[in-house]
Simulated scan of single mutants.
Amino acid sequence: MTSDALFRSSVMTVEPQWIDYNGHLNMAYYNVLFDHGVDEAFAGLGLGPDYVKTHNASFYTMEVHLTYLRELMEGDPVSITLQMLDCDAKRCHFIQSMYHATEGYLAATSEQICMHVDMGLKKSAPFPAEIHDNIKAMQERHAALPRPPQVGHVIGIPRKA
């Protein structure tokens, strides 16, 4: 179940060449789908393909934590939601959720932190004010939404004490 406040991507399709020898979507291609989802969401914030050209700046992924919850198969339609969890002058922390677009089940999540980068200097730099305002407004719209249980998840083999 998703909220109308969340960004939702266009519907994408699991491609035949993305299927692995187990007969389901290969783990690498979850990242491809999540990447397309963040590109759509960030274009809406003013960080689309032209942004690199006009501002000589971009955003780089610093950390990703993917959680695989359910298989996807060839031809499955998927959509991605994005919930902005936090931001500052240079960084965004968000979680994306991948859903089967017709059956509605949650297939995977991707928690990420990205950094705004001056492409000329190859160093972090503050977002322009209008972009930061857009990101902050998204984060404020999402602040009251429940945090998915995968946020901040620690990886490890559970052991009994």
Rank of each mutant, 00 (worst) to 15 (best):
1 M>V: 12
1 M>A: 12
1 M>C: 04
2 T>N: 06
3 S>Y: 07
5 A>P: 04
7 F>R: 02
9 S>P: 06
10 S>L: 10
11 V>E: 04
11 V>A: 13
12 M>Y: 15
13 T>W: 11
15 E>G: 06
16 P>K: 05
21 Y>W: 07
21 Y>R: 07
22 N>P: 05
24 H>Y: 15
25 L>E: 10
27 M>W: 12
27 M>I: 14
29 Y>A: 07
31 N>T: 12
31 N>L: 13
31 N>A: 14
31 N>I: 09
33 L>G: 02
33 L>A: 08
33 L>S: 09
34 F>S: 08
34 F>G: 05
34 F>I: 07
34 F>V: 04
35 D>V: 06
36 H>A: 08
36 H>Y: 11
36 H>M: 10
38 V>N: 02
41 A>M: 08
42 F>C: 04
42 F>G: 00
45 L>S: 03
45 L>T: 00
46 G>W: 05
47 L>Q: 01
53 K>T: 02
53 K>Q: 04
54 T>K: 15
59 F>A: 06
60 Y>W: 13
61 T>E: 11
61 T>V: 07
62 M>V: 12
63 E>H: 10
63 E>G: 07
65 H>V: 15
65 H>S: 13
66 L>M: 13
67 T>P: 15
70 R>L: 10
71 E>S: 09
73 M>L: 13
73 M>G: 14
74 E>W: 12
74 E>C: 12
74 E>P: 05
75 G>W: 12
75 G>V: 14
77 P>F: 12
77 P>K: 14
77 P>G: 07
78 V>F: 11
79 S>E: 08
79 S>M: 14
79 S>Q: 14
80 I>T: 10
81 T>E: 01
81 T>C: 14
84 M>L: 12
85 L>W: 00
85 L>N: 01
87 C>F: 06
88 D>G: 01
90 K>D: 08
91 R>K: 13
92 C>Y: 02
93 H>S: 13
94 F>D: 01
94 F>S: 05
95 I>K: 00
96 Q>E: 15
97 S>F: 03
98 M>H: 03
98 M>N: 02
99 Y>S: 05
100 H>E: 05
102 T>K: 15
104 G>D: 05
104 G>V: 11
104 G>I: 10
105 Y>K: 11
106 L>W: 10
107 A>P: 10
111 E>Y: 08
112 Q>A: 15
113 I>D: 01
115 M>F: 09
116 H>R: 03
119 M>D: 02
119 M>R: 00
120 G>Y: 01
122 K>E: 06
124 S>P: 00
124 S>R: 01
125 A>I: 00
125 A>H: 02
126 P>Q: 03
127 F>V: 01
128 P>Q: 04
128 P>W: 00
129 A>C: 08
130 E>C: 02
131 I>V: 14
132 H>L: 12
135 I>H: 00
135 I>K: 01
138 M>Q: 08
138 M>G: 03
138 M>C: 13
138 M>L: 14
139 Q>P: 09
140 E>T: 13
141 R>S: 07
141 R>E: 03
142 H>G: 05
144 A>K: 13
145 L>V: 14
147 R>I: 02
149 P>F: 07
150 Q>F: 10
152 G>K: 11
153 H>A: 11
153 H>C: 15
153 H>N: 11
153 H>D: 09
154 V>N: 13
159 R>V: 11
161 A>G: 12
